[in-house]
Design a protein around this nucleic acid. Structure first.
Lengths: 213, 213, 213, 213
DNA sequence: TATGAATGAGCCTTCATTCAT
DNA sequence: CATGAATGAAGGCTCATTCAT
């Protein structure tokens, strides 16, 4: 991680560079996968020298994992706003809740599809031994925070009688699992059919779930 | 793929060897991930020399992907049986249908959890350029077959008035997506909590879905 | 380190290869120094691929340090023989002792001048963090053993009245220090003058010492 | 080398900076060795930016080698003074000569042990291709000068009958070789035993030599 | 068939050096 | 003068794959 820059000008440049690198990394990792991607390719894509990558990230793993943060943050913002709405009793029906959550999930996905995929790969087994401890910590924090917000929203809605009484943990899991399951499946299918049914399938799934909660 | 052996004795030995290699590969791939696993480790685990691996599989990718087949086959057997039951009108309610499907999915998962994970990794993006064309073909065939059976079962049940009229493709997707989403999430959680909530969560999910289809 | 080979044939080849690599390494390390030498150059010099080097040595440091062992062993053999002569009272005068020791030292140097230099570099500061623990252990063992033999010889000769009573540890140190000091200085001079005064200077030094012990 | 400064004030600052850099470099080179030390570490230790190092030294080698000069100069001053004493016939015995020389050598060592080690590393093989020609020249000049002074002292003392007639070159070499041999050995031992026997061993060595010259 | 020594392309990473500010 | 971000060449090391035995 870069240390305190002297001027705001420099600071801006640094943050811009960092974003550019991440953007390039996203594209390359997306196309080639983690193992298949090389730092050289990422550097080239970012119009930066190989060495520069290591000024911003301690190693390949660190760079890879850093791509998750923006997605988690974006999701966090949405969920936070959602929680406030729920607290203000703006959400008054099951359907409203589900369609809103579906929107949030889909918006998060659209915000950075590659980042979403990276989160999945990460969840699928963390083979990132060299990842900087700090980054790992940060990720877990954000993920947990999002999880907690969702669960609290569910609890509130159950208390308000909008949702049936159910184990909120299981429900939280199921909602998220539905999202990632559908993303994985539809992206996989889209890769061969070139047709994007992700949103409609997701809507359908939440509709079905809607009748059971 | 090895060519036709001389004697049944030899054939058996070959098939045993092959299974041993695959078993070893599953363990190593599971522990280290695809990129992290080395052919050396797999060979050692299988008590076989490195060269021998190449007598049974054309390369690393081929070996990796071959681990999916048994799972797909097992699932296929289950689904085939299921389809027959449906045809024989043995399945007479929505709940029966869902609990049976849930059983099948979970049994498939239990049959080979590592294999299941490999299927997911594969779906997540096929970065397996070197994979032998034939194997790839085989996999796609089996996967498609399973997909088709499920869809036909759904169609039949809709015709029989057991399930609501819905897009059978979407529904097939949603059911499978629920499975893989929950596997991914619960395994990820289990890795830190050491607690296995996979089955109960899966049951809960299918129960919820049950009320909507 | 390579594991148990199946046939004596193979074993022989392995040991030959190992020697060839070490020979090549000696030459390259001698010419370029440790940091300046590359594994690529050594591989090329040994007519072997880069990867092969790592079948015989765990890393560059390990290879470098392994070059010390033959010298230490050779010196050990000489000293062992020497100790036996002393025990059999074959050495009966101070001059005889010194000229014999001088011979041994010089023979050791001639046996492998590069190896001798490597020992010095090693002594000059062990910046060999990556060196395999086992190799480091071995080296220390051999060095200590040689040190002990020398000291015992001195003790015996003092008891026999051939040498004056002196701190045997200091004397051991001084004799060895004289050797390495002169090697270092004379090799350094030889590099510019192209004239080899090592042996005569060493003889002169031991002659001078002879009158004081 | 920096060019002529504008004011004496500036000149002073420059020379201070230079010393600070060299001090930092000594510490880092000592701890990590030449190859292990990085310009970054040295810059940080000297509280200076990396670029600044290159304002004072043309490259890493140049900086490294420059650390030898102070030691050579210090030794030169001592030897010069010594030569004057000899010329004034103040040294009237072999023992006096040796104990004085021993003092000088030890004082030089104490003045800058790291610098001494650097001299040894340098002598052990000059793998400093990039070193600026001028610096190399300077070093050789100083070293030769010291060498010459010592030799002349010996010649004078032989003429005065204080020392036996011997080849003065060999004797000069042996005295210096004894010093560096003992430094190398005792420092090496001290690294593991934590005990400093350098001075006593050096004294003992010169005592022994004393009886033979 | 089985072996495992050998290969060598390719990767991640480091770091001396430069140069715009 | 001083800085430190950027460079990119170079090096150590890994590992999938081959092939002589």
């Amino acid at each position: 991680m870069p240390s305190k820059p002297k001027s705001p000008r420099r600071a801006m440049q640094k943050s811009v560079r960092l974003s550019e690198i991440q953007k390039a990394a996203r594209e390359v990792f997306f196309t080639k996968g983690f193992a298949g991607a090389t730092m050289e390719q990422i550097a080239k894509q970012a119009r930066v020298s190989k060495g520069t990558l290591y000024l911003y990230f301690t190693n390949k793993d660190d760079l890879y994992v850093s791509l998750m943060l923006p997605v988690l943050d974006e999701l966090g913002r949405y969920l936070h706003e959602f929680a406030q709405q729920v607290e203000r009793k703006t959400i008054i029906s099951r359907d409203q809740f589900l369609s809103r959550l579906c929107e949030i999930y889909y918006a998060t996905y659209q915000f950075d599809p590659d980042g979403m995929r990276i989160i999945q790969t990460f969840q699928l087994g963390n083979h990132f031994a060299a990842m900087s401890k700090a980054t790992l910590e940060t990720i877990n924090q954000r993920a947990s925070a999002n999880y907690r917000i969702t669960r609290n929203v569910l609890l509130q809605l159950m208390r308000d009688g909008i949702l049936k009484q159910r184990d909120p943990i299981k429900l939280t899991d199921i909602l998220w699992a539905t999202l990632i399951g559908i993303i994985q499946l539809e992206e996989s299918k889209a890769r061969t059919t070139q047709k994007d049914h992700l949103k409609v399938t997701l809507l359908c799934a939440f509709e079905i779930i809607g009748e059971g909660i």
